[in-house]
Design a protein around this nucleic acid. Structure first.
Lengths: 345, 345
DNA sequence: GTGAAAGCGCTAACAG
DNA sequence: CTGTTAGCGCTTTCAC
C-alpha cells in the first residue's frame, strides 16, 4: 500500500527518447508524430502513438516551456487574502484560462506589501506569462509597477496607476439600478444606509443613489447617506436612528446585503412591513445573506464571475501580443429581484 | 504608456551567460557565485553579484526545475469549487508551502469527474511535486488512484481508498465538545437540530452529541436528531416543531452556524430567552453568521487552517521521501464561546 | 520521410 | 579558484 505507492513514485516517467527507442525511431520523429507536425508516414505516426500509449508517456511541459520561452501559466496575486469577493472572480478567470490550457499559480499577499513584492519576484522567476492582481476591496491600490516583463491586469482591485489595466464592477451604475428599481416600484422617500464612509465603493454607491433620485426629482431622506460599517448590526442601528428622527421613508438602498438584512430585521421588529411599507434593495447578491433575510432581499449583483472572465480575456489578449488600452474598465451590475421589493397586487 | 509597457515586455530577461559576460567569468562560475556553492574568491563572487544586480538577473526556475527533476510546485485540486470551507484549508496550506518556497497551482474540478481527470493529467504534465485534493464536503470521494507518480493528500475531502492519506476535522469530537459544553453550563434536556441526513458530517456530529449525552446519563430530546437542511430557515422550522411537541428542552446543539442562527431567532421570537432559558451551540465558527446571530453563537471551530497546515506538511514530508502512514487523520475541533451559552451570574 | 545536431537556461562534474 | 563540458526533455532546423 504505502510501499506500492512509494515504488510507483520512484519510477521515472518516460521521455521522448524512451518512446523513440520503443517505436524504433528518433526522438525528433516522436516529437513530430505526437504533435502532428512535419511529414510522416501514417504508419510511423501510428507506431509512435502506440509506443507512447504503452509507456504512458506524458510530455514534460517544463521542458517544453523552456524552449517556448513561456509557461502557459499566469500568476494570481491577491492583495488581501481570498474570500467571498475574490472567489467568483477567480472562478471566472479559471473558465477562460482553462479553455486556453493555461494554469493559475496562486499567491496570497495577505495585505502585506513586502510579501506581495516577494510573490511578484517568485512569479517572475517562474516565468509566468502574465499576472492577475485581485483583492477584496475595490479601492485603488499601489501598482505593481510599469517595468514588469509580463502583462498585468487588476481585477476588482484597481491600480492607482492609470497606465495599468484595471477591471472593476460599476458601483455607481449598480446603485442607480437599485434606486431606480425602488422608484419604479412606487417608492419616493428613499434612504441610503451604507458601510464605511471612506471606501471607494461606499462613495460610488452613494453617488449613484443620489444621482438616480435627483433624476426623478427626489433627494435622499435625511439629505445624505447614513454611513457606518458593513454589518447587520449597523443596518439595525441605522433603522433605529431613522425611526427616531421621525422623517417618513418608504425605501432603503442598503450598501450591502449584510446591512440590508439588518435593515430588514429591524423594520420587521419595529412593525413596519417589508415590502408593503418599505422596500429594500441590498448590494452584492451574497446568496446566503440575501436569501436568509426576512423577507429575502432584492439586491444588486456585481457579476464578479463575468469580471473574472473579462480580466482573464484581457490578460490572454495581452499575452498574445495585443496591446491593451490602459485605464479602468467598469463592468455593469445587474438587478436581482426578491421579495423585499415586491409590489403588492 | 501602453507603448512603454510593451517595449519593456519584449526585452528578453537576462541569463547566466549575460551575467557571466558582464562579470567577465564563465556561466558555471555565475551559478556557483549566486547559489553560494563551490570555492570562489570573495572578490569574484562580489563581481558576479554586482553584475547580476545590474542586469536585474532573476534565475529561470523553469530551467532549474528541468535539471532538478522537480518544480517546487504542488497542485491543489478541488472536488467541488472553492468556498467558505476550502479557503481556510488553502490558506493554511499556503502558509506551509510558502515557507518552503513552493507554489500552488490551482484547479477547480467543479464536481465533474471528467474535468478532474483532465486536471490531474495537466498537473502531472506540469510535473508538480505533489497534489492536495480538497472539497467542500467531507464525505468520502473517489480516489485519484494509487498509480500516480507523485504523492497525494486529501484535505477536508476524504478519499474512499483507505490506502490514501486523508486529513479531515473530527466531527464527532467537535460534537462531543458542543454537548459537553451545554452540560457544563447546566443544561440537561438537549436537542440536536442538524442538516442533511445522509451527509457524513451530519452522522458523525449526531453520534458525538448522542455519545456525550449518554456519558452524562442523558439522551436527546425527542430521542433522535432533527435532520433537515443546512439553512437558517430549517433551524427556525425545527424550533417550531420542537415547541409544538411540547417536550421541554434547555439546550440545542445545532449542526451548523446557519441552523444555529435560525434556532436562535425562532426562540427569540417565541419568547424563549437565549442563553437564560435555552443554550445554543453552533458548528463551523463561520464568523459572519455566528456573530450576527442574536445572541452571538457559541460554536465549534473545525480549525480548517490547521487542517491545511497538516495536509501541506504531510505532503511536503512525502515529497521529501518520507513514506506516510496511509489512512484518515482526524484533526481536533475547538470550542469558541459566545453569548448563546453564557451562564447567568 | 526520417535522423542528427543544436539549443532553451541552468547546474554538476571534472579539468586545469 | 575558475573554465569547460555535458545534459535535464523537448523541439526545430537542416541534411540525407
Amino acid at each position: 500500500m504505502a510501499g506500492a505507492g512509494a515504488s510507483a513514485r520512484t519510477r521515472r516517467s518516460s521521455t521522448v527518447s524512451d518512446v523513440a527507442a520503443l517505436a524504433g525511431v528518433s526522438p525528433g520523429t516522436v516529437s513530430k508524430a505526437l504533435n502532428g507536425r512535419g511529414q510522416l508516414r501514417a504508419e510511423t505516426r501510428r507506431r509512435v502513438i502506440d509506443a507512447a500509449q504503452e509507456l504512458g508517456f506524458s510530455p514534460n511541459l517544463v521542458a517544453r516551456g523552456l524552449i517556448a520561452g513561456r509557461t502557459y501559466t499566469v500568476g494570481v496575486l491577491t492583495t488581501d487574502s481570498f474570500g467571498r469577493f475574490t472567489i467568483p472572480v477567480m472562478l471566472g478567470a479559471e473558465d477562460v484560462m482553462g479553455a486556453g490550457e493555461m494554469s493559475m499559480l496562486l499567491c496570497d499577499g495577505r495585505g502585506d506589501p513586502l510579501r506581495e513584492q516577494h510573490y511578484v519576484r517568485t512569479l517572475l522567476a517562474r516565468r509566468v506569462d502574465g499576472i492577475i492582481v485581485t483583492g477584496r476591496r475595490s479601492d485603488p491600490r499601489p501598482s505593481l509597477g510599469r517595468h514588469l516583463p509580463v502583462p498585468v491586469v487588476y481585477a476588482l482591485a484597481q491600480s492607482e496607476d492609470p497606465g495599468d489595466v484595471s477591471v472593476v464592477h460599476d458601483d455607481t451604475q449598480g446603485a442607480v439600478l437599485a434606486a431606480e428599481h425602488l422608484l419604479a416600484t412606487g417608492r419616493r422617500r428613499i434612504a441610503h444606509v451604507t458601510g464605511t464612509a471612506h471606501h471607494a465603493a461606499t462613495q460610488h454607491r452613494a453617488a449613484g443613489v443620489t444621482a438616480a433620485l435627483a433624476a426623478a426629482g427626489e433627494q435622499l431622506v435625511g439629505g445624505r447617506p447614513l454611513t457606518g460599517e458593513w454589518s447587520e448590526r449597523w443596518g439595525r442601528d441605522a433603522v433605529t436612528e431613522l425611526l427616531l428622527r421621525g422623517e417618513p421613508f418608504d425605501g432603503v438602498v442598503a450598501g450591502s446585503d449584510q446591512v440590508g438584512r439588518g435593515v430588514a430585521s429591524a423594520l420587521r421588529e419595529a412593525g413596519r412591513r417589508v415590502p408593503e411599507d418599505v422596500g429594500i434593495v441590498g448590494f452584492d447578491n451574497w446568496d446566503v445573506m440575501a436569501e436568509a433575510s426576512r423577507p429575502p432581499l432584492t439586491t444588486i449583483d456585481p457579476n464578479l464571475t463575468d469580471l473574472g472572465h473579462t480580466a482573464a480575456s484581457l490578460l490572454l489578449d495581452a499575452i498574445g501580443g495585443r496591446s491593451l488600452e490602459p485605464g479602468v474598465r467598469r463592468s455593469p451590475c445587474r438587478l436581482v429581484t426578491r421579495r423585499s421589493t415586491e409590489t403588492v397586487v
